[in-house]
């Protein structure tokens, strides 16, 4: 384990949060098995949804218009370009692309793509079983002391 990295394992979220406060300024992160309702992170998820929808809708519209204009076959009384079928295709593709946009943006922003994990298996297991873990990336001499004084069960 890198010397400048320290992992504090806490029994409760409150203790871990308090330790985070004391460590303010240090590069640290908190890990838990349920959301701790920390302040919302700035994100582009909604933007991704809207852009995805726009792109999907536009490509759906382009597809229907392309097909209606290239296929010179008459089918009954319906005009070559009608709103209702085009609308449904546009709607379906817009929704699909919107979902894809959100999914992609989530994977990108939450760092789920690479799959690299910061914690060793034993600590991840602790987290799963309810522990709350604070990872300090730029640990200094007194970091270990702060973590322990705030009630960390053990520090690695």
């Amino acid at each position: 384990m890198n010397d400048s990295k320290l992992i504090g394992v806490f029994n409760t979220g409150e203790a871990a949060r308090a330790a985070m406060l004391r460590l303010s300024g240090a590069d640290c992160e908190i890990f838990s098995s349920e959301p701790l309702h920390s302040p919302a992170v700035k994100n582009h998820l909604l933007k991704a949804a809207i852009w995805g929808g726009l792109i999907g809708g536009a490509s759906g519209g382009a597809l229907t218009v392309f097909v209606f204009t290239t296929m010179g076959l008459k089918t009954g009384h319906m005009a070559m370009i009608t709103l209702s079928p085009a609308g449904i295709i546009v709607f379906g593709l817009a929704a699909l692309a919107s979902i894809a946009g959100v999914l992609f943006e989530l994977l990108r922003e939450a760092g789920l793509f690479g799959g690299t994990l910061d914690l060793p298996h034993s600590v991840r297991k602790e987290v799963t079983h309810g522990a709350v873990v604070v990872l300090v990336r730029s640990a200094t001499a007194e970091t270990r002391q702060i973590l322990e004084s705030q009630g960390a069960r053990f520090v690695l």
Binding site: I30, S32, P35, S38, N43, A95, L103, L106, A110, R124
Partner: peptide
């Protein structure tokens, strides 16, 4: 994937589920 339960991941996940529900 790379899920480890950081507060950032939780926040993003909850937000994206809500958007997804609306779509």
């Amino acid at each position: 994937l790379g899920w480890q339960g950081t507060s950032r991941q939780w926040s993003l996940l909850e937000r994206s589920i809500t958007i997804m529900a609306a779509i």
